[in-house]
Design a protein around this nucleic acid. Structure first.
Lengths: 164, 164
DNA sequence: CTCTCTTGGTTGACACATCATCCATCCTGC
DNA sequence: GCAGGATGGATGATGTGTCAACCAAGAGAG
């Protein structure tokens, strides 16, 4: 029997950890809402729209299978499906049939989507710079990257299976 | 006329910045979904529920005005209102009238909410530890805190008004 | 005392994310 | 060639967040 879950004394965070954690959560929440709001106001795109469009423009073929897109962006397939439906309705992307696989579909960026992302990108980068990078030293940027990578690595490691 | 928005050459991110930024975004997204999923599975609470309940238990009086709660948690008042309605329907919190101000209401945690947060907290902390702090050195924890604080400071500073 | 302004809070419409389920097509073994 | 599973993707219900508009009660100014 494993008693991690029912242990008498949980390993609470110490003061430094507590502070770092609260700051991180608050920062992350505020930052994403600010980025989203400014992107929306300036370019009429959500962060999700932006990510999809950027990803599509990075492509040579200009089109991508739906689930492949989902894997690359690390989205759930149902999220992808719903979101692409909304984006298609707004004319930012288009579905194309897949000759080789009757089930599948390609997603391609439309000229309108192209125009939207080209207009949005410089402004968004400017926002990111103003809200984040202008405030950080290059050591801090490196540290942020290292911490992020380390946590990603940890997340990739599935939780140790606690069989008892 | 101000030409930040229409400048010929946007200040794109350099490679280091680009990498740090992408890692940060990915980490942040993955981490919040993982934390949310585990909390939901173990304790049947969302992160939002958790934040509200923790905040309410930290209080002496055990009750708080709604907008004050919103300010402290840094939520929009409409979000707070919607969320409290859902939590009340599940019996986690209760509304109490405010004698002094006919418009207002107090929010109090219910015994059921108390039980929920007491059961959830140790498990959630354990999850945070496993996914984040176990992976980081104490220098990295300090760096994460410092970077978060710095960005929060930057966010607090309203964008320089670009009147032209 | 009333007219306005502000404050505390709700509401409805909509975008977004997740889960579970479903459906069609492809693939594989026989 | 066909039964059964895997894959690509859509769908609906529900919970969550935002915006804008609204409403009721307090607070001042005259």
């Amino acid at each position: 029997m494993n008693d991690i879950d029912t242990a008498a004394e949980p390993r609470w965070l110490n003061d430094t950890e507590q502070h770092a954690w609260r700051s991180f959560l608050r920062m992350q929440a505020q930052l994403t809402t600010r980025l989203g709001r400014e992107l929306q106001a300036e370019s009429d795109l959500s962060i999700a729209d932006y990510d999809v469009l950027v990803h599509l423009t990075d492509l040579e073929g200009g089109r991508r299978r739906i689930l492949e897109l989902a894997r690359e962006l690390d989205w759930e397939k149902s999220r992808m499906s719903h979101h692409l439906a909304r984006m298609a309705k707004r004319g930012l992307i288009a579905r194309e049939e897949c000759e080789a696989d009757g089930r599948g579909a390609f997603i391609a960026i439309t000229p309108q989507g192209q125009a939207a992302i080209e207009a949005a990108a410089p402004r968004h980068v400017e926002t990111v710079r103003r809200l984040v990078f202008d405030a950080l030293t290059s050591e801090q940027v490196a540290a942020l990257g290292a911490v992020s990578d380390r946590i990603l690595e940890q997340l990739g490691t599935p939780a140790p299976s606690c069989e008892d």
